[in-house]
């Protein structure tokens, strides 16, 4: 993996303020990363599904909000289960929530698709733990 090639970032959250904040933070930390934002989880799901059919070499980091209408973060992951091998290969998924519910953290630990869990708001230190190889 090329050190200069920054990972692509996908943000999935129905809260626009949250998306704006995370975008600003990521731009600061990973100025060369391409950032895609979805405020509708269903749209995000279809995008991810399509991407797996024609994967790009670069690893994509996804910040996935849990509490969303129509399709929650967990439901989205559930739909991706069929493609778990590919998804694990190309996606690094971090769950993101403002919830203080410890069950979300537990679920994140046991879900094979999930690399980690962050409480909102996202901060710089969180980025350091996403894997220094990218930063």
């Amino acid at each position: 993996m090329n050190k200069n090639s920054s990972p692509d970032i996908i943000l999935v959250d129905d809260d626009p303020i949250c998306n704006m904040l995370n975008e600003l933070l990521i731009r600061e930390m990973l100025p060369h990363s391409e950032i895609t934002i979805f405020s509708n989880s269903l749209e995000a799901y279809h995008f991810l599904l399509d991407s797996l059919k024609n994967p790009i070499a670069n690893t994509t980091i996804i910040f996935l909000d849990i509490n969303m209408p129509i399709m929650s973060g967990w439901e989205l992951l559930n739909e991706l289960k069929e493609h778990i091998t590919k998804a694990r290969q190309y996606y690094k998924i971090y769950m993101l929530s403002s919830s203080l519910d410890p069950r979300d953290n537990d679920n994140a630990k046991t879900n094979p698709l999930v690399s980690g869990f962050f409480e909102k708001p996202l901060n710089r230190f969180d980025f350091l733990t996403t894997g220094d190889s990218h930063i």
Binding site: L21, N67, S98
Partner: peptide
């Protein structure tokens, strides 16, 4: 907490 987190983030 969602708006609080937002304010903190901002």
């Amino acid at each position: 907490r969602a708006p609080v987190a937002n304010i903190m983030g901002i």
